[in-house]
Design a protein around this nucleic acid. Structure first.
Lengths: 336, 336
DNA sequence: TTGTACGCGTTATCAT
DNA sequence: ATGATAACGCGTACAA
């Protein structure tokens, strides 16, 4: 029984236009409004989004693109947390969310997204500088908000944190507690966040004149990568390790343990993200809280802001980070 | 630049109807078909799904409902695996997927889903017997496929495994290796899978005349619940523990270790799901492979099948399970 | 305040 | 094989 505006109009003895006004808040007399509302209630009518979208151009539906292997959702809680922040915010303001994961190529995914043609806007994670998916969305008419910053385009709306400053602060903490041979396990090379954190590390080391040669090893944001990189850096002799994220720190911790070394006495260890995993490690991990959920929510809000007023230029949001000091760098001493 | 059929029609000197036929495979002469295709290619035209849905009633969009706290996606890989199986299958046949997690109440979520009015069908996880969200979907016109079985309605399409038989097989394995005081940590009570696994356990024990009094403790599918339930059962004295899922087995393993007991010498341990976590535990965990990804994919295929031919009654799919024997029950001996 | 009428981009039916 | 033309359900100027 396909309820339409016409059905309601007939049932309440008014024109379709009036029913539409009741629903969308147009000028209607109190009397007829109540009469129509009563009918709407009785039939629990639901407007057809497709038709509404066609007529008004707005659907209340937004897209979310996390172009990652679906298994990443549980392998790296970062993505699930991001999704959580988005869905929380979207549940309030959007009628629904379409989701694309990395099941197809970026080009195919881009095609699908643009083909739907019913989305009000999309949120997409932007990890790398050149990303055909992100580029395609930005080049399209689709209102787009990135999670992640790309120096290239200041014309894009995005939400991000200052990875460089955060990494510099964390590295300085390692220096402050007296470490001198501080190794860095990078994030996946080519990712903006990975490169930025590396830059922050380098800047902090340079500022106090500490060498970094041979102290940087490529990681890939995974525990396995962290383990391998840590093994290599331990060979070089380090008294601290700053890992590209918490997951790689988890791997690094295993590598340290396998050598019979202690954390933090022999090697101070730090990560990035502050996933719940960080507090649960033994010892609890010093890391950077980058407010992943907040980033997701902020991206949703930025998109709604953009949709409300498409003028006003791109929305650029940089959220604060917080250094979280735990026993993996200051063992025994409680976190301040 | 909103490319429409009319634009293409004008550019290729034919009528809108002909362009539509070219796209949807109607009868068109080879010559004009090529001419139109060339224009389509050049303009990389994308049909508007909203309009298409309005006119044909089909959108190519399907909904997926996992009414869980979003954080569950990484806390219990089961859900992410299920989603992976679905997205893989959907990516091939669907134009896109809408996703609802447990950000709102079931009633609110149901309302949102039905309101979209553009979905061809939905897949929803059915955990409990009475679920207003599932009931509402089944009562609606929306083609619906459940992941999980509910004895109540044989009229619904669903995908599931035989939890009772799988649990019985697993319990029998524990009996076969000589265990007699076999405890069971149930899944969350009220869930069909939890109750069914408990039933399977009871049946296996009853078949060989083993008592179960005091040997069943309620769990909730979480490591914490598993830890608590295991502690209590260890007080009773058990030589084996069958846990409602792999996660609770992980918690149970911690409880066993805390008492200085060995697995499997003192207590044999088994789970359910065969998440990757199971193979990575120390010792590797005996469990039931219930093909989570396959269930997700099967649900998607069942939905497409249903959409293709809405007659033919409900699709009922029961997938096979596989007992996976590892060192947590037969320590030292390699898995057969 | 209310109704009429047109347009949104497609599919589908009917002539031609 | 092709082209008009009528739906699909809704929003919205415009007229009344």
């Amino acid at each position: 029984m396909p309820q339409t505006l016409d059905d309601l109009a007939e049932m309440s003895g008014v024109s379709r236009a009036t029913v539409s006004r009741v629903i969308n808040g147009g000028p209607v007399s109190e009397a007829t409004r109540n009469r129509v509302l009563e009918v709407i209630e009785r039939t629990n009518y639901r407007p057809n989004m497709a038709a509404r979208s066609l007529a008004s151009g707005r659907s209340g539906l937004v897209g979310v693109v996390l172009h990652i292997p679906p298994a990443m959702l549980f392998k790296d809680p970062y993505f699930a947390l991001l999704l959580e922040g988005m869905t929380d915010a979207l549940a309030e303001q959007a009628g629904g969310m379409m989701l694309w994961l990395g099941n197809r190529t970026k080009e195919e995914t881009l095609d699908r997204i643009l083909q739907v043609g019913i989305l009000d806007g999309v949120i997409v994670t932007a990890n790398t500088l050149d990303d055909p998916l992100v580029d395609g969305l930005l080049a399209s008419e689709m209102p787009t908000v990135l999670v992640g910053h790309r120096q290239a385009d200041l014309s894009a709306s995005y939400v991000d944190v200052d990875h460089i400053a955060a990494a510099e602060e964390l590295t300085s903490h390692l220096i402050d507690i007296g470490r001198r041979r501080i190794g860095h396990i990078s994030g996946r090379r080519g990712t903006v966040s990975g490169e930025d954190r590396l830059t922050g590390y380098r800047q902090a080391m340079a500022r106090v004149g500490l060498p970094v040669e041979g102290l940087v090893e490529d990681g890939d944001f995974t525990p396995e990568g962290g383990y391998a990189a840590a093994s290599s850096l331990l060979d070089q002799g380090v008294d601290a390790l700053f890992c590209g994220n918490d997951l790689s720190a988890e791997g690094a911790l295993r590598a340290i343990r396998h050598r019979g070394l202690r954390v933090p006495e022999d090697v101070a260890l730090a990560g990035f993200d502050d996933l719940s995993l960080a507090a649960e490690l033994d010892p609890p991990l010093t890391t950077v809280d980058q407010g992943v959920e907040d980033q997701g929510a902020a991206a949703a809000h930025a998109l709604f802001d953009l949709l409300k007023d498409s003028e006003g230029g791109p929305r650029r949001v940089t959220l604060p980070t917080k250094l979280v000091i735990r026993q993996s760098t200051v063992g025994g001493v409680p976190a301040r």
